Simulated scan of single mutants.
Amino acid sequence: MSQAMRSEVAESWHRSAAAGVDVGAESSPITLPEDDLVEYRAAHALAPVYPLLDDALGEAARACDALLALSDHQGQLLWVTGTTQTLRRAEAIGFVEGASWDERLAGTNAPGTSLVLDRPTMVVGAEHYRESVRPWNCAAAPIHDPITGRILGVLDVTGGPDVASPQTMAMVRTAARLAESELTRLGGPIPVPHMIDGEVFVRADVTVQCLGRREAVLTVRGKAQVLSRRHSEILALLATSPRGLAGDELALLLYEGDVPATSTLRAEMNRLRGLLGEEVIGSRPYRLLVPVAGDWNLVRALLAAGDVVAAMRHYAGPVLPHSDAPGVVALRENLHGELRATIVASDQADLMAAWTRASWGADDYEVWTAQRDLLPATSPLQPLVRSQLARLDLEFA
């Protein structure tokens, strides 16, 4: 192994260790048996674009004895194609249709790590957490719903030395964008049946991203723009109040301390309406006239559905963390507290590790303590956890 390691790989090894992945495990588990796999992938949102991906990238992958794979948003491999010889070699590490390559089960690998980071990722040779996978190289890129922005799955090329190149990464990234363009042309993805997919999400022409951001990013029919902080706060409050808010109600949620004259709020609303259009924001009461999807609502829905892993994956940070608007503060604290409590109660050390590695959880004494108590005494993470608890004892004694 090289004497140096990329930070994103080191972080992934940390998550893999916290999840209890065995470095010596030979293969990844099958989470979709063949009978379920056939039905599941036929109904999957990426089924209409898989032939296009295979046409664009499959032949090139097979020509260099590599595999083309497409997973769902949970890291389960739905399609794996390649030469017979390469497919047989891949069976030994469990890189087969129906297997899960989520980091929590398979350790550091390009499809699983790309899911966590939500960006194109390459993992080369010894960077893989499991020893059995280290002879392989892989390059992967997430594919997003062009309307909601959620991850639908991950496109991956896995093979030998030829895969470990910038050209492969560029090809995979381009093919993933091609799939998103095709989904846009088709009018967005075909929704996966809830009974199979299990993920709750809102499909809308307008999306608002507030998690971990100073100002919200508003996307209307594919066009994104950054809002001012005040407009970010207003939009977040309206998106959380589908029945609308009277002027005095909105003012109380928006302004800290003394509420200014009604003309101040009216002027802000007029500017926001001019920016978005009268067809988006109504008045008397102030309300949104079109479906609006918020990234914080997706996290709330996933928590309600019991999918804390996906909720944590989508949680990019507290809602508008620099806002002092009372309504936003309440929204932020409620979501943050609910997610934190769910993680503490989950008894999953990898989720706790992800929380404490983030800026908002680095000083969370209770979660560090829960990790210490949950991890085996022989875990390689115990010294790190205990050192962080000692740091917090000194700082906050």
Rank of each mutant, 00 (worst) to 15 (best):
residue 136 W to C: 01
residue 295 D to K: 00
residue 30 I to F: 10
residue 100 S to T: 13
residue 281 I to C: 10
residue 205 D to I: 13
residue 190 I to S: 08
residue 227 L to M: 13
residue 17 A to H: 02
residue 300 R to S: 15
residue 18 A to L: 09
residue 272 L to V: 00
residue 175 A to Y: 07
residue 24 G to M: 10
residue 96 V to W: 01
residue 342 T to G: 02
residue 103 E to V: 15
residue 390 A to V: 10
residue 272 L to E: 10
residue 256 E to P: 00
residue 85 Q to S: 11
residue 15 R to I: 02
residue 226 V to C: 06
residue 345 A to H: 11
residue 285 P to K: 13
residue 230 R to V: 14
residue 232 S to N: 03
residue 95 F to A: 05
residue 11 E to V: 04
residue 383 P to W: 14
residue 312 M to L: 12
residue 49 V to W: 02
residue 81 T to M: 14
residue 195 M to K: 13
residue 114 S to V: 11
residue 53 L to V: 12
residue 96 V to K: 05
residue 59 E to P: 07
residue 140 A to V: 12
residue 65 D to T: 09
residue 263 S to F: 00
residue 56 A to G: 05
residue 222 G to K: 07
residue 346 S to L: 09
residue 240 T to A: 15
residue 177 R to M: 12
residue 75 G to T: 04
residue 126 A to H: 12
residue 36 D to T: 07
residue 329 V to T: 12
residue 336 H to E: 10
residue 122 M to N: 02
residue 376 P to T: 08
residue 206 V to G: 04
residue 241 S to V: 03
residue 39 E to R: 14
residue 198 G to V: 08
residue 385 V to Q: 01
residue 26 E to D: 14
residue 100 S to V: 07
residue 186 L to I: 04
residue 117 L to S: 08
residue 264 T to G: 03
residue 39 E to F: 04
residue 183 L to R: 04
residue 155 L to Q: 07
residue 339 L to M: 06
residue 286 Y to N: 00
residue 316 A to Y: 10
residue 169 M to P: 05
residue 290 V to G: 07
residue 281 I to F: 03
residue 253 L to N: 07
residue 247 G to E: 02
residue 69 A to S: 14
residue 364 D to I: 04
residue 282 G to C: 03
residue 82 G to N: 05
residue 388 Q to V: 07
residue 93 I to E: 08
residue 311 A to T: 04
residue 2 S to E: 15
residue 33 P to I: 00
residue 73 H to S: 09
residue 225 Q to M: 09
residue 51 P to C: 05
residue 214 R to V: 14
residue 132 S to M: 04
residue 138 C to G: 14
residue 3 Q to R: 13
residue 91 E to F: 00
residue 65 D to Y: 03
residue 219 T to L: 03
residue 53 L to G: 02
residue 329 V to N: 06
residue 286 Y to W: 12
residue 286 Y to I: 10
residue 26 E to H: 12
residue 77 L to G: 09
residue 270 N to W: 08
residue 98 G to E: 08
